[in-house]
Simulated scan of single mutants.
Amino acid sequence: MENGDKEKMQRIRENAVIKAQEKADEEEKSKAVTKREHKKFALEATMKLEETERKRIENLKEEERKKVTEELEIWKEKQRNEEKQRRIQREEEIRRERKLIEEKKKQEINKTLNAGTSKARSIPTRGAGSSGNIFSEKLEEESFPAPRSAGTIKISFTSRVFPTALRESRVAEEEEWLHKQAEARRAMNFSELKDLNEEEKNPDWLKDKGNKMFATGNYLAAVNAYNLAILLNNKIPVLYLNRAACHLKLRNLHKTIEDSSKALELLIPPVPDNADARVKAYVRRGTAFCQLELYAEGLQDYEAALKIDPTNKTLEQDAEKIQHIINGTAQDS
Rank of each mutant, 00 (worst) to 15 (best):
A305V: 11
H254L: 14
E70C: 04
L239A: 00
T46P: 01
D25M: 10
R11A: 15
K111L: 03
K8R: 09
S143M: 13
I18F: 12
K321T: 12
E58G: 08
T34K: 14
R65D: 10
R54I: 03
E73N: 08
V17Q: 12
E73Q: 05
L178G: 06
I94H: 09
L43E: 13
K249W: 10
F41W: 11
A229G: 00
T52V: 15
E141Q: 08
R90D: 06
F41M: 09
E103L: 04
Y226R: 04
K249A: 01
A215F: 06
Q21V: 02
K23C: 01
E320W: 00
N327T: 02
Q79E: 06
P310N: 11
A263W: 05
K106P: 06
A281E: 03
I236Y: 03
K29Q: 10
C290P: 09
K6H: 09
E73T: 08
I325A: 02
H179Q: 14
I268M: 07
D259H: 07
I12Y: 02
V161I: 13
F41Y: 14
I12R: 10
A222T: 02
F41K: 15
E91P: 00
E2V: 03
N234Y: 09
W75R: 06
W205S: 15
F162C: 05
L250N: 09
K99T: 12
N114D: 11
K307H: 11
N218M: 01
D276P: 04
E183L: 07
V283C: 04
E176W: 01
M1Y: 10
D276W: 09
E265D: 10
E173V: 06
I308Q: 07
K19E: 04
A184Y: 03
P147I: 12
L315I: 11
A225T: 01
F162V: 09
H247N: 08
